[in-house]
Simulated scan of single mutants.
Amino acid sequence: MSTEERPPKRPRNDYGSSDASGPPALQRSTDYWFDDGNIILQVESTQFRLAKSVLAMHSSVFRDMFSLPLPQDEPLVDGCPVVILCGDRSEDWTHLLAAVFPLQLFRTRNPTLDQLSAILRLSKKYDIPLPRSDCVRRLKCEFPTTLAEHDQLDTGWMHIEIPGDLSITQALVHLVNLAREVGLFSILPLLLYDIIIAAEPGENDHDNPNVLHHALRKLSTADEIACLRFHVRLMQPYHQTPLKWIESVPCVECTAAPKCSVKIDLLLGLALNAPNALIHEFLTQWDSHDDWSSKVCEKCLIVAKAVHETARQKFWDRLPSFFELPEWEELRKMDFE
């Protein structure tokens, strides 16, 4: 094609103007447009003017990119080359740059779910290890891989800030999909288990029996099926769960056999009449149930605690397999860090 026949380049939109039928007008980031920057990243309709040296210091992807010579006819904006990042969201880049250019020396607030998600996605795509390692650490603290670490968790979210308009189940589903996307597999077993717990109907949810079904629809088909199968397994006889300690009472050395037997029979009756409630007890520590210790004699208490703790550890060890995942150690090796 000759020069005369070559079609003209698509005209560049001016800042602040927009064709109603065309793409949005380009706009400069209000927070990340530095006058001494020498590269412009364009994400959707937002442009960020940054320093090549800072991007290269944090990201091997940009370091390799900047090592290549620019084409001679490369168009410039304010004397800077423009790199268009397709497939990214400008909001995600704003969250990432807030981590790269912090305004506070010591951060006192946990990152929001959106911030954490954005940083993990982009830090993986562009190989930016520093902010990624902090986000990975937070998720692994929130969803540990050992029972001892799990027992140290407090109630509620400790390392992530969840929006008030998002339910616990919705947040957990979001994190499962994020973990799959960024390759953080070791947090999946506890995440999926917590979805089952959070979606179990409570005292005020009798009119909404499909809580679990609605929660799982946002998961991948494989994770949805695994959760449903696990839920069926959880509705198994109590003696296949950590509550099997009930069978150990009265023990051989029981000093109050009639009394212990009657109280355990009452507890067993309550458990069998409310099978959904059993699910919440599988990983719960013994000391969280003050009423359990008061129902048996000292001899039975020693035996019951030992049976409960052994079964609880066994349940934890098998947790990944319930969701058709590899063992804990293998999951830790699979993590992208």
Results as ranks from 00 to 15, higher is better:
Pro11Ser: 05
Trp33Gly: 07
Asp154Ser: 15
Arg332Tyr: 04
Phe62Leu: 09
Lys263His: 14
Ser288Tyr: 13
Leu50Glu: 08
Arg217Glu: 12
His95Val: 01
Gly156Ser: 03
Lys263Leu: 14
Arg332Glu: 13
Arg107Asp: 11
Pro7Val: 10
Gly156Met: 02
Glu181Arg: 13
Thr169Asn: 04
Asn210Pro: 03
Tyr193Val: 03
Pro237Leu: 02
His150Leu: 05
Glu200Pro: 00
Asn38Glu: 05
Pro81Tyr: 00
Thr108Val: 08
Glu253Thr: 11
Glu247Gln: 12
Arg28Gly: 00
Gly37Lys: 07
Asp114Ser: 10
Phe336Gly: 01
Arg28Leu: 01
Trp245Pro: 13
Phe230Ala: 09
Ile196Cys: 10
Trp316Met: 07
Val232Pro: 00
Asp205Asn: 10
Cys251Ala: 15
Ala179Gln: 01
Glu330Cys: 07
Ala199Asp: 03
Phe315Lys: 04
Ala25Met: 05
Phe230Asn: 04
Ser2Cys: 06
Val232Thr: 11
Leu283Phe: 15
Asn13Leu: 11
Ser18Cys: 14
Lys244Gly: 10
Gln313Glu: 13
Ile168Ala: 13
Leu147Tyr: 02
Ile119Met: 01
Asn276Glu: 09
Leu70Arg: 11
His95Gly: 02
Ala199Arg: 03
Glu4Ile: 10
Leu147Asp: 03
Leu212Lys: 09
Cys227Tyr: 01
Ala118Cys: 04
Asp194Ser: 12
Ala51Met: 14
Leu212Glu: 11
Leu55Gln: 03
Trp157Tyr: 10
Ile187Pro: 01
Glu330His: 11
Ser186Cys: 09
Arg332Ala: 07
Pro129Val: 01
Gly37Val: 07
His159Ile: 03
Gln240Leu: 15
Thr241Trp: 00
Asn110Trp: 00
Gly22Phe: 04
Ser123Tyr: 04
Val262Met: 08
